[in-house]
Design a protein around this nucleic acid. Structure first.
Ligand code: ZN
Ligand code: ZN
Ligand code: ZN
Ligand code: ZN
Lengths: 157, 157
DNA sequence: CCGGTTTCCGTTACCATATAACGTGCGGCA
DNA sequence: TGCCGCACGTTATATGGTAACGGAAACCGG
């Protein structure tokens, strides 16, 4: 599946260029590591892997790169795991001119195999927006993370 | 509003008794601190306050109490803040015999004043359940946390 | 090409959040 | 009485995240 990673990297490159953001060597490398993980991955796990090619890497090195990738909507943070994962459809959501909130999304996290499936369900988003409206709350961003068993694991055991 | 805190503590006592769980002195004290905070409060902030009356308190002291209170559904964790808050309607949800998942709930967190409003919106829960069903996911618990401006702060500015 | 400005990133130090591991005391129970 | 399980103290450690400073490099208006 290295091909998928390469494709995603090229798409990220293109998206950044469109917005005038600089996907530097370091940021590109961190994005590659997140893509290759394929699952939510912690900042320090990324740091360890990053050090394979970059001797002096330290926490700020990886956190700054992650902040950039979050800004660009190329990755998401999984709050329940304090971990990061590549956006499943970074190439789809419109390249806003400015910086950004990530697009609305939800995660279904398997407690057995560790997979995190990203979806963008309009009716969940609508229900949240409606509830917010009802209490006069002005939403700026939402975290929706469901823990449980994925289809494969539920069947297996 | 100390009266409200006392009332909640008595309700918690009753609920624990019903389930055969022991709301010890320590756990009761931590619950009191969470109730008195009125907002999401970090474990180490609780630890500091706990130390006022308990010289030797250490991280495990407060984390074990918090784990118990979470089990009993008396408090919730706010993942986005790594903080804890008293359940807004702990006396309402059925006292399951066994231990438990917390009841379904959602938080609307004001980024200006720090308040976190807990609601239990059936249509949000339903939309999530439906999305889970569609992908064959078996949910065990959900985190729904919306960040933004509460009604008061949105009006103020 | 120059000089001013911004951005990126190396580096050090530190803070914040959470858990592992082990021991002791205590109450319930055969 | 001996055993067991739970609660909790205690120490140490793991894991996650920032502040602050400085130098190098990219960018831009001349
Ligand atoms: Zn996404
Ligand atoms: Zn699974
Ligand atoms: Zn609640
Ligand atoms: Zn507010």
């Amino acid at each position: 599946m290295a091909a998928a990673t390469e494709h995603a990297l090229e798409a990220a490159e293109a998206a950044c260029t469109l917005r005038g953001a600089r996907l530097t060597e370091l940021r590109r490398e961190v994005l590659r590591l997140v893509l290759e993980a394929g699952q939510p991955v912690g900042a320090y796990a990324l740091l360890d892997r990053l050090r394979a090619g970059r001797a002096g890497a330290a926490p700020p090195t990886v956190y700054r790169a992650l902040d950039f990738l979050l800004e660009q909507g190329l990755i998401h943070k999984v709050e329940r795991l304090n971990a990061f994962i590549a956006c499943a459809d970074a190439h789809d959501h419109a390249p806003h001119a400015g910086h950004g909130h990530a697009h609305p999304h939800q995660f279904f996290i398997c407690g057995r195999c560790g997979d995190a499936a990203e979806i963008a369900d309009a009716s969940i988003a609508a229900a949240i927006a409606e509830a917010a409206r009802r209490i006069g709350f002005r939403p700026r961003g939402a975290t929706v993370e469901v823990e449980g068993l994925c289809a494969a694991c539920a069947e297996a055991g």
